[in-house]
């Protein structure tokens, strides 16, 4: 059988020489790169030193047995996602069940059947590749923390109450020097602009969950709770303004369109969750706090200040962030007056 699969980097752990050869040679024929360890302690050292795609792990071993290696891997943030296939004889079935319940990917009975071995290994590698792809995809719209949370908890439609901070940002005006706007140039401008805003937001542990036209919505402190979400959101806003300034200078130097933005931030209780269908869903937040953040963002033009926040966000800020009390404003559709603060650069 010639390998129809992408080769992987595999670690075979078994204290028995015959078993090691049996496992290693069969898989080498499939093009995989195999390394071997004779006991659990050695295996763990190798796993911490090098990146592997899959581990074949014997249960019965001296020094550190397979069960202990599995536990150590599951507790290690770097190794937690590494697929581990337990190898054992039939009369160890109780231990195998324990391992699979704990988080082992699969198991193989000894004596090893080479055909089953290849099938399980290739299936596990394929699953790992898919998971890695998924993780990469999630990482494009979430921070590492959030991506790991999503991978661990999985995703299900449906919401829960969270205390979080929501940011809306929108382009307030375009300053154009040329008489005819080139559509390609506008799209290029938006792409460059979004890239900068993404950096600022994800750099402060926020996730962007909506992009509509030239506006975006981001959430801080969900799905992973963060004590410093108010501070992070405002620091992200400040960085956005700073990056935008540099961006506008470059645009001006090339006689290209410049932009001004407004940012509104509000904090409080909201309903967060995945909304959509099983096939296409986004993580989003809804509720009064979210509506308020949108209203505050719209208010930036009238207030003439680029970053506005509500009282709850203001209360979560450290002293070195300077804010100015703009007093109370009654927003459309709201009965209560809302105390608004402008963040100083």
């Amino acid at each position: 059988m010639k390998f129809a699969h992408e080769p992987g980097h595999l670690l075979v752990v078994d204290d028995n020489k015959v078993n090691r050869i049996l496992l290693a040679r069969g898989l080498e024929q499939d093009g995989h790169k195999i390394e071997t360890a004779e006991n659990g302690r050695q295996a763990l050292e190798m796993l911490k030193r090098d990146a592997f795609d899959l581990v074949l792990l014997d249960i019965e071993m001296p020094e550190m047995n397979g069960y202990q290696v599995l536990e150590a891997c599951l507790q290690d943030i770097e190794l937690r996602n590494l697929p581990i296939i337990m190898t054992s004889s039939l009369d160890e079935i109780d231990s195998v069940i324990k391992c699979v319940e704990l988080g082992a990917e699969d198991y193989l009975n000894k004596p090893i059947n080479p055909i089953l071995l290849r099938a399980r290994v290739n299936a596990s590698l394929e699953k790992k590749r898919l998971r890695d792809e998924q993780r990469k995809l999630i990482r494009t719209f979430a921070t590492r923390e959030v991506a790991e949370e999503l991978m661990r908890e999985g995703f299900s439609l449906g919401g829960r109450y969270v205390d979080a901070t929501v940011m809306f940002s929108d382009i307030r005006s375009y300053t154009t020097y040329s008489e005819n706007e080139d559509p390609a140039e506008i799209i290029e401008l938006l792409n460059n602009y979004f890239a900068l805003m993404f950096d600022a937001i994800t750099g402060h542990h926020g996730i962007i969950n909506q992009m509509v036209g030239d506006g975006l919505m981001a959430v801080f402190g969900a799905p992973v709770q963060r004590e410093d979400r108010c501070e992070q959101s405002v620091r992200a806003a400040l960085e956005m303004m700073e990056l935008l300034e540099g961006f506008n200078q470059e645009q001006a130097a090339q006689n290209k369109t410049q932009i001004q933005i407004g940012i509104g931030i509000a904090s409080g209780r909201m309903i967060a969750g995945y909304a959509g269908t099983q096939h296409r869903a986004t993580y989003t937040c809804v509720g009064d706090t979210v509506n308020l953040a949108k209203r505050i963002e719209e208010h930036t033009k009238q207030a003439g200040r680029p970053i506005l926040i509500d009282r709850f966000t203001r209360e979560g800020l450290p002293e070195d962030i300077q804010v100015e009390d703009l007093g109370e404003t009654i927003f459309k559709g709201k009965h209560q007056a809302i105390n608004i603060f402008a963040v100083n650069k």
Binding site: D15, N16, V18, P62, S89, K110, P111
Partner: peptide
Amino acid sequence: SFRRNAHSMKSNANT
């Protein structure tokens, strides 16, 4: 140690 070595011998013999 006795159990582990008997286990290894069993495993290889069955192979």
